[in-house]
Computed example of a mutant assay.
Amino acid sequence: MAPQKAPDSSRRSDRSRRAIYDAALALVGEAGYARTTIEGIAARAGVGKQTIYRWWPSKSAVLMEAFLDMAARRSDGAGEPAIPDTGDLAADLRAVLRATVDELNDPATEAPTRALTAEGVIDPALAARFVEDLLEPQLQLYVTRLRAAQEAGDVRADADPRVALELLVAPLTHRWLLRTLPLTHEYADAVVDHALRGLTPRP
């Protein structure tokens, strides 16, 4: 009679974590952040709430890790994709801002992003992790592309890439946060056109 294998606790833990991630993201999307609870996440994931408290100190920490995991899975573990460099800066920036619009309007990412953004206002530690783990890697892609454009003579040599990228990213974020007007591809294109008028070298 073949000996029985001992249960693989690491595999069981991975399954539990995945279930908790999925439950947290689903509940925030369905009920909103305020009505999402550790108890609700545990029930949805089919685990005890003590399992969650053993791994995370709060529901915001659960949601943050679930969101980072979702972002990693969407990029297939390849890290942040580079902004294209076709030699046409305007076209490259329009492409990436249009993709950003699509992501911000995607129901799968909109609710957890709004929740983490709002909670970060009152939780400095969460805000710091949100910036360090999620936002900063994305912003660095803009810095890299804008520096390449400077070297090619397409952007003024005296332009600060960190300030310049805010001309592109901040308007989209502002409109998305306030929900005052639709966030569209046409708006993204207009943002690029307006920003580049101030960034391109003048004769």
Rank of each mutant, 00 (worst) to 15 (best):
M70E: 09
A152H: 00
P84W: 13
G48F: 01
V47H: 05
A170W: 06
E80A: 10
G40Q: 04
E80M: 10
A159H: 01
D158W: 02
L196S: 12
V96R: 06
V101F: 02
P107W: 14
A19W: 12
A78I: 13
W176A: 15
Q138F: 00
P161A: 10
H194G: 04
D106E: 10
E186I: 00
S10Q: 13
A23E: 03
A91E: 12
L146S: 12
R35Q: 09
E30D: 01
R15H: 13
G48Y: 06
A152R: 09
A90Q: 13
L141V: 11
A23K: 01
D193T: 14
Y33E: 07
T51R: 08
L97V: 06
T200R: 14
R156H: 06
D85I: 03
E80G: 04
E136H: 01
R175C: 13
A188M: 02
L134K: 03
R94A: 15
P107L: 14
A6D: 05
H174W: 11
S13D: 02
P112Q: 08
A72K: 11
E103A: 08
A152C: 02
T200F: 08
R197K: 03
A43S: 05
V169W: 14
V169S: 14
A195W: 09
L183N: 09
G29L: 14
E166R: 13
L25V: 13
F130A: 14
L116Q: 10
P3M: 11
D106I: 10
L183G: 11
A127N: 00
V28E: 04
T37L: 02
A99H: 06
I83L: 07
R147V: 06
E132T: 13
I122V: 15
P161H: 09
R44K: 02
A118R: 09
P137E: 08
R11E: 15
G120E: 03
V143S: 03
L116H: 10
A24S: 11
Y142S: 00
T117R: 11
A159C: 04
P84C: 12
V131Y: 11
L146M: 12
A31F: 11
A128Q: 08
Q150P: 11
V96K: 00
R162E: 09
P182E: 12
A42D: 00
R12A: 15
P161C: 09
E39Q: 04
M1V: 07
A24T: 10
M64T: 04
